[in-house]
Design a protein around this nucleic acid. Structure first.
Lengths: 154, 154
DNA sequence: GAATATTGCTCAGTATGCTGACTATCAGTA
DNA sequence: TACTGATAGTCAGCATACTGAGCAATATTC
Protein backbone atom coordinates (compact mmCIF):
# COMPACT_ATOMS: atom_id res chain seq x y z
CA UNK A 1 0.00 0.00 0.00
CA UNK A 2 1.46 3.30 -1.12
CA UNK A 3 1.77 5.85 1.62
CA UNK A 4 0.59 9.42 1.21
CA UNK A 5 4.22 10.46 1.37
CA UNK A 6 4.90 8.58 -1.84
CA UNK A 7 2.20 10.46 -3.71
CA UNK A 8 3.48 13.55 -5.50
CA UNK A 9 -0.06 14.91 -5.51
CA UNK A 10 -0.30 14.73 -1.75
CA UNK A 11 3.13 16.26 -1.30
CA UNK A 12 2.18 19.05 -3.67
CA UNK A 13 -0.89 19.86 -1.60
CA UNK A 14 1.10 19.93 1.62
CA UNK A 15 3.86 22.11 0.24
CA UNK A 16 1.39 24.54 -1.24
CA UNK A 17 -0.50 24.67 2.03
CA UNK A 18 2.69 25.66 3.84
CA UNK A 19 3.69 28.11 1.13
CA UNK A 20 0.40 29.98 1.40
CA UNK A 21 0.52 30.06 5.19
CA UNK A 22 4.08 31.43 5.17
CA UNK A 23 3.21 34.05 2.58
CA UNK A 24 0.19 35.29 4.48
CA UNK A 25 2.09 35.41 7.76
CA UNK A 26 5.01 37.37 6.34
CA UNK A 27 2.76 39.81 4.52
CA UNK A 28 0.63 40.37 7.58
CA UNK A 29 3.71 40.96 9.72
CA UNK A 30 4.68 43.65 7.24
CA UNK A 31 1.30 45.28 7.82
CA UNK A 32 -0.43 44.30 4.58
CA UNK A 33 -3.44 42.21 3.64
CA UNK A 34 -2.78 40.56 0.30
CA UNK A 35 -3.01 36.90 -0.75
CA UNK A 36 -0.41 35.13 -2.91
CA UNK A 37 -2.89 35.09 -5.75
CA UNK A 38 -3.64 38.79 -5.43
CA UNK A 39 0.06 39.57 -5.24
CA UNK A 40 0.87 37.66 -8.43
CA UNK A 41 -2.01 39.31 -10.25
CA UNK A 42 -1.03 42.79 -9.11
CA UNK A 43 2.64 42.31 -9.99
CA UNK A 44 1.66 41.06 -13.44
CA UNK A 45 -0.67 43.99 -14.03
CA UNK A 46 2.13 46.36 -13.09
CA UNK A 47 4.51 44.65 -15.53
CA UNK A 48 1.93 44.66 -18.34
CA UNK A 49 -0.18 47.80 -18.01
CA UNK A 50 -3.46 47.74 -19.88
CA UNK A 51 -3.63 43.99 -20.38
CA UNK A 52 -7.03 42.33 -20.43
CA UNK A 53 -8.26 39.68 -18.02
CA UNK A 54 -7.81 36.68 -20.27
CA UNK A 55 -4.20 37.64 -20.97
CA UNK A 56 -3.56 38.14 -17.27
CA UNK A 57 -5.07 34.75 -16.53
CA UNK A 58 -2.78 33.15 -19.12
CA UNK A 59 0.32 34.81 -17.72
CA UNK A 60 -0.17 33.44 -14.23
CA UNK A 61 -2.15 30.31 -15.09
CA UNK A 62 -5.38 31.24 -13.38
CA UNK A 63 -8.77 30.17 -14.54
CA UNK A 64 -10.65 33.01 -16.16
CA UNK A 65 -13.57 32.56 -13.80
CA UNK A 66 -11.22 32.88 -10.84
CA UNK A 67 -9.63 36.08 -12.13
CA UNK A 68 -12.93 37.93 -11.95
CA UNK A 69 -13.13 37.67 -8.17
CA UNK A 70 -9.43 38.35 -7.66
CA UNK A 71 -9.63 41.58 -9.61
CA UNK A 72 -12.83 42.53 -7.83
CA UNK A 73 -10.88 42.45 -4.59
CA UNK A 74 -7.87 44.33 -5.97
CA UNK A 75 -10.21 47.02 -7.25
CA UNK A 76 -12.10 47.11 -3.99
CA UNK A 77 -8.82 47.65 -2.13
CA UNK A 78 -7.92 50.47 -4.48
CA UNK A 79 -4.84 48.70 -5.85
CA UNK A 80 -5.98 48.28 -9.45
CA UNK A 81 -8.56 49.61 -11.88
CA UNK A 82 -10.72 48.07 -14.59
CA UNK A 83 -11.18 50.25 -17.64
CA UNK A 84 -13.23 49.72 -20.76
CA UNK A 85 -11.03 48.82 -23.69
CA UNK A 86 -11.25 51.08 -26.69
CA UNK A 87 -10.18 48.35 -29.10
CA UNK A 88 -12.60 45.67 -27.92
CA UNK A 89 -15.71 46.54 -26.03
CA UNK A 90 -15.88 43.07 -24.49
CA UNK A 91 -12.51 43.46 -22.82
CA UNK A 92 -11.40 45.33 -19.70
CA UNK A 93 -8.00 46.93 -19.55
CA UNK A 94 -6.32 46.49 -16.19
CA UNK A 95 -4.01 49.09 -14.68
CA UNK A 96 -2.30 49.41 -11.34
CA UNK A 97 -2.99 52.47 -9.19
CA UNK A 98 -0.42 54.57 -7.37
CA UNK A 99 -1.59 52.92 -4.18
CA UNK A 100 -1.05 49.52 -5.79
CA UNK A 101 2.44 50.51 -6.85
CA UNK A 102 3.25 51.69 -3.35
CA UNK A 103 1.91 48.48 -1.86
CA UNK A 104 3.93 46.32 -4.25
CA UNK A 105 7.10 48.20 -3.43
CA UNK A 106 6.67 48.01 0.33
CA UNK A 107 5.55 44.39 0.32
CA UNK A 108 8.46 43.01 -1.69
CA UNK A 109 10.76 42.25 1.27
CA UNK A 110 8.01 40.23 2.95
CA UNK A 111 7.35 38.28 -0.23
CA UNK A 112 11.03 37.47 -0.68
CA UNK A 113 11.34 36.51 2.93
CA UNK A 114 8.39 34.14 2.54
CA UNK A 115 10.08 32.38 -0.38
CA UNK A 116 13.16 31.82 1.77
CA UNK A 117 11.18 30.55 4.73
CA UNK A 118 9.24 27.97 2.76
CA UNK A 119 12.54 26.49 1.58
CA UNK A 120 14.28 26.73 4.93
CA UNK A 121 14.64 22.97 5.25
CA UNK A 122 16.69 22.82 2.05
CA UNK A 123 20.19 23.93 1.16
CA UNK A 124 20.53 26.60 -1.49
CA UNK A 125 21.44 23.94 -4.00
CA UNK A 126 18.49 21.78 -3.04
CA UNK A 127 16.15 24.75 -3.28
CA UNK A 128 17.36 25.42 -6.80
CA UNK A 129 16.95 21.77 -7.72
CA UNK A 130 13.43 21.69 -6.31
CA UNK A 131 12.46 24.68 -8.41
CA UNK A 132 14.06 23.17 -11.51
CA UNK A 133 12.15 19.91 -11.09
CA UNK A 134 8.88 21.72 -10.41
CA UNK A 135 9.36 23.86 -13.52
CA UNK A 136 10.07 20.77 -15.59
CA UNK A 137 7.09 18.82 -14.30
CA UNK A 138 4.84 21.85 -14.75
CA UNK A 139 6.00 22.39 -18.32
CA UNK A 140 5.12 18.81 -19.20
CA UNK A 141 1.74 19.00 -17.51
CA UNK A 142 0.82 22.53 -18.46
CA UNK A 143 -2.00 21.59 -20.78
CA UNK A 144 -3.55 19.15 -18.35
CA UNK A 145 -5.22 21.85 -16.28
CA UNK A 146 -8.01 24.12 -17.33
CA UNK A 147 -5.82 27.15 -16.67
CA UNK A 148 -2.58 26.56 -18.55
CA UNK A 149 0.20 29.10 -18.72
CA UNK A 150 0.15 31.02 -21.99
CA UNK A 151 2.78 33.26 -23.42
CA UNK A 152 1.67 36.42 -25.09
CA UNK A 153 2.90 37.52 -28.45
CA UNK A 154 2.37 41.21 -27.89
CA UNK B 1 12.65 41.78 -10.63
CA UNK B 2 12.10 38.18 -9.69
CA UNK B 3 9.96 36.21 -12.10
CA UNK B 4 7.06 34.08 -10.98
CA UNK B 5 9.06 31.07 -12.11
CA UNK B 6 11.66 31.81 -9.47
CA UNK B 7 9.09 31.74 -6.68
CA UNK B 8 8.70 28.36 -5.05
CA UNK B 9 5.26 29.44 -3.84
CA UNK B 10 4.07 30.09 -7.36
CA UNK B 11 5.55 26.85 -8.65
CA UNK B 12 3.87 25.00 -5.81
CA UNK B 13 0.50 26.41 -6.77
CA UNK B 14 0.98 25.49 -10.43
CA UNK B 15 2.10 21.96 -9.71
CA UNK B 16 -0.74 21.37 -7.32
CA UNK B 17 -3.20 22.74 -9.85
CA UNK B 18 -1.98 20.24 -12.41
CA UNK B 19 -1.90 17.40 -9.89
CA UNK B 20 -5.56 17.94 -8.98
CA UNK B 21 -6.64 18.21 -12.61
CA UNK B 22 -4.84 14.97 -13.50
CA UNK B 23 -6.27 13.15 -10.51
CA UNK B 24 -9.83 14.20 -11.27
CA UNK B 25 -9.48 13.31 -14.95
CA UNK B 26 -8.08 9.84 -14.28
CA UNK B 27 -10.67 9.09 -11.63
CA UNK B 28 -13.49 10.27 -13.82
CA UNK B 29 -12.21 8.15 -16.72
CA UNK B 30 -12.39 5.19 -14.37
CA UNK B 31 -16.03 6.01 -13.74
CA UNK B 32 -15.75 7.50 -10.26
CA UNK B 33 -16.43 10.85 -8.68
CA UNK B 34 -13.95 11.40 -5.88
CA UNK B 35 -11.61 14.31 -5.21
CA UNK B 36 -7.98 13.92 -4.12
CA UNK B 37 -8.92 15.15 -0.68
CA UNK B 38 -11.81 12.72 -0.36
CA UNK B 39 -9.62 9.88 -1.56
CA UNK B 40 -6.90 10.55 1.01
CA UNK B 41 -9.47 10.79 3.78
CA UNK B 42 -11.19 7.57 2.76
CA UNK B 43 -7.92 5.65 2.44
CA UNK B 44 -6.85 6.86 5.88
CA UNK B 45 -10.16 5.88 7.43
CA UNK B 46 -9.79 2.42 5.96
CA UNK B 47 -6.29 2.08 7.38
CA UNK B 48 -7.37 3.34 10.83
CA UNK B 49 -10.91 2.15 11.46
CA UNK B 50 -12.75 3.98 14.20
CA UNK B 51 -10.46 6.99 14.35
CA UNK B 52 -11.95 10.36 15.24
CA UNK B 53 -12.00 13.44 13.04
CA UNK B 54 -9.17 15.30 14.72
CA UNK B 55 -6.88 12.31 14.40
CA UNK B 56 -7.82 11.92 10.78
CA UNK B 57 -7.11 15.59 10.17
CA UNK B 58 -3.69 15.19 11.78
CA UNK B 59 -2.80 12.17 9.69
CA UNK B 60 -3.39 13.91 6.39
CA UNK B 61 -2.72 17.51 7.48
CA UNK B 62 -6.17 18.89 6.91
CA UNK B 63 -7.71 21.63 8.95
CA UNK B 64 -10.33 20.31 11.34
CA UNK B 65 -12.93 22.68 9.92
CA UNK B 66 -12.25 21.35 6.44
CA UNK B 67 -12.61 17.74 7.52
CA UNK B 68 -16.21 18.28 8.51
CA UNK B 69 -17.32 18.99 4.97
CA UNK B 70 -15.14 16.29 3.43
CA UNK B 71 -16.66 13.64 5.68
CA UNK B 72 -20.12 15.01 5.05
CA UNK B 73 -19.60 14.25 1.38
CA UNK B 74 -18.10 10.80 1.98
CA UNK B 75 -21.08 9.96 4.16
CA UNK B 76 -23.51 11.38 1.64
CA UNK B 77 -21.96 9.18 -1.03
CA UNK B 78 -22.30 6.16 1.23
CA UNK B 79 -18.55 5.55 1.42
CA UNK B 80 -18.06 6.20 5.14
CA UNK B 81 -20.04 6.43 8.35
CA UNK B 82 -19.91 8.66 11.40
CA UNK B 83 -20.63 6.90 14.67
CA UNK B 84 -20.88 8.21 18.20
CA UNK B 85 -17.85 7.27 20.25
CA UNK B 86 -18.48 5.34 23.43
CA UNK B 87 -15.32 6.61 25.09
CA UNK B 88 -15.87 10.29 24.37
CA UNK B 89 -19.26 11.70 23.61
CA UNK B 90 -17.70 14.67 21.83
CA UNK B 91 -15.98 12.51 19.27
CA UNK B 92 -17.22 10.68 16.19
CA UNK B 93 -15.71 7.38 15.16
CA UNK B 94 -15.20 7.08 11.44
CA UNK B 95 -15.54 3.81 9.58
CA UNK B 96 -15.44 2.88 5.93
CA UNK B 97 -18.45 1.13 4.41
CA UNK B 98 -18.36 -1.89 2.12
CA UNK B 99 -19.20 0.46 -0.71
CA UNK B 100 -16.27 2.63 0.32
CA UNK B 101 -13.97 -0.37 0.35
CA UNK B 102 -15.13 -1.41 -3.09
CA UNK B 103 -14.62 2.09 -4.42
CA UNK B 104 -11.12 2.32 -2.98
CA UNK B 105 -10.15 -0.97 -4.52
CA UNK B 106 -11.47 -0.16 -7.96
CA UNK B 107 -10.12 3.36 -8.01
CA UNK B 108 -6.54 2.49 -7.10
CA UNK B 109 -5.25 2.01 -10.67
CA UNK B 110 -6.57 5.42 -11.65
CA UNK B 111 -4.93 7.02 -8.64
CA UNK B 112 -1.60 5.42 -9.39
CA UNK B 113 -1.86 6.36 -13.02
CA UNK B 114 -2.50 9.96 -12.00
CA UNK B 115 0.68 10.02 -9.92
CA UNK B 116 2.66 8.85 -12.93
CA UNK B 117 1.08 11.35 -15.29
CA UNK B 118 1.79 14.34 -13.09
CA UNK B 119 5.48 13.40 -13.15
CA UNK B 120 5.60 12.53 -16.81
CA UNK B 121 8.06 15.30 -17.61
CA UNK B 122 10.60 13.84 -15.21
CA UNK B 123 12.78 10.76 -15.30
CA UNK B 124 12.21 8.16 -12.59
CA UNK B 125 15.24 9.44 -10.75
CA UNK B 126 14.09 13.04 -11.01
CA UNK B 127 10.63 12.09 -9.77
CA UNK B 128 12.16 10.46 -6.71
CA UNK B 129 14.34 13.49 -6.12
CA UNK B 130 11.37 15.85 -6.40
CA UNK B 131 9.48 13.85 -3.81
CA UNK B 132 12.48 13.75 -1.52
CA UNK B 133 12.92 17.51 -1.69
CA UNK B 134 9.24 18.13 -1.15
CA UNK B 135 9.21 15.84 1.86
CA UNK B 136 12.23 17.63 3.30
CA UNK B 137 10.81 21.11 2.75
CA UNK B 138 7.46 20.02 4.18
CA UNK B 139 9.04 18.52 7.27
CA UNK B 140 10.83 21.79 7.99
CA UNK B 141 7.70 23.87 7.42
CA UNK B 142 5.18 21.52 8.98
CA UNK B 143 4.34 23.76 11.93
CA UNK B 144 3.94 26.87 9.81
CA UNK B 145 0.45 25.96 8.64
CA UNK B 146 -2.69 25.71 10.71
CA UNK B 147 -3.07 22.07 9.74
CA UNK B 148 0.26 20.38 10.49
CA UNK B 149 0.83 16.68 10.09
CA UNK B 150 0.61 14.86 13.41
CA UNK B 151 1.65 11.35 14.19
CA UNK B 152 -0.52 9.32 16.43
CA UNK B 153 0.79 7.36 19.34
CA UNK B 154 -1.90 4.73 19.42
C1' DG C 1 -23.62 41.83 -45.40
C1' DA C 2 -25.80 37.94 -43.00
C1' DA C 3 -25.07 33.68 -40.64
C1' DT C 4 -21.86 31.32 -37.83
C1' DA C 5 -18.16 30.71 -34.82
C1' DT C 6 -15.28 32.48 -31.47
C1' DT C 7 -13.92 35.33 -27.70
C1' DG C 8 -14.10 38.29 -23.14
C1' DC C 9 -16.39 38.35 -19.18
C1' DT C 10 -19.69 37.14 -15.63
C1' DC C 11 -22.56 34.20 -12.78
C1' DA C 12 -24.44 30.03 -10.24
C1' DG C 13 -23.02 26.07 -8.05
C1' DT C 14 -19.63 22.96 -5.75
C1' DA C 15 -15.26 21.78 -3.15
C1' DT C 16 -11.25 22.84 -0.71
C1' DG C 17 -8.84 25.72 3.02
C1' DC C 18 -8.60 29.12 6.24
C1' DT C 19 -10.05 32.49 10.66
C1' DG C 20 -12.70 33.01 14.45
C1' DA C 21 -16.47 31.91 17.35
C1' DC C 22 -19.46 28.75 19.62
C1' DT C 23 -21.39 24.38 22.05
C1' DA C 24 -20.71 20.21 24.38
C1' DT C 25 -17.83 17.44 26.77
C1' DC C 26 -13.87 15.93 29.19
C1' DA C 27 -9.75 16.39 32.39
C1' DG C 28 -7.41 18.30 36.16
C1' DT C 29 -7.46 20.74 40.37
C1' DA C 30 -8.66 23.21 44.43
C1' DT D 1 -17.89 19.03 43.95
C1' DA D 2 -17.20 23.36 41.71
C1' DC D 3 -13.97 25.70 38.82
C1' DT D 4 -10.81 26.07 35.13
C1' DG D 5 -8.81 24.83 31.06
C1' DA D 6 -8.47 22.01 27.11
C1' DT D 7 -10.52 19.32 23.40
C1' DA D 8 -14.05 17.51 19.49
C1' DG D 9 -16.91 19.14 16.42
C1' DT D 10 -19.67 22.55 13.95
C1' DC D 11 -20.82 26.91 11.81
C1' DA D 12 -20.49 31.55 9.45
C1' DG D 13 -17.72 34.04 6.50
C1' DC D 14 -14.09 34.77 3.12
C1' DA D 15 -10.80 33.48 -0.78
C1' DT D 16 -9.22 30.41 -4.18
C1' DA D 17 -10.33 26.92 -8.09
C1' DC D 18 -13.20 24.56 -11.04
C1' DT D 19 -17.65 23.16 -14.30
C1' DG D 20 -20.99 24.75 -17.07
C1' DA D 21 -24.03 28.19 -18.81
C1' DG D 22 -25.03 32.56 -20.58
C1' DC D 23 -24.54 37.44 -22.67
C1' DA D 24 -22.35 40.77 -25.45
C1' DA D 25 -19.22 41.77 -28.87
C1' DT D 26 -15.88 40.58 -32.40
C1' DA D 27 -14.11 37.52 -36.33
C1' DT D 28 -14.82 34.55 -39.95
C1' DT D 29 -17.02 32.62 -43.67
C1' DC D 30 -19.96 32.31 -47.36
Amino acid sequence: MKDNNDMPGHLARRFQQIAVAVFLAEVEDAGFDLTPVQYAALATIKANPGLDQVTLAGLIAYDRTTITGVIDRLVQKGLAERRASSRDRRARELVITDEGRRTLRKITPAVESAQRIMLRGLSAKEGEELMRLLRKAIAAGNDLSRAPLRDVQA
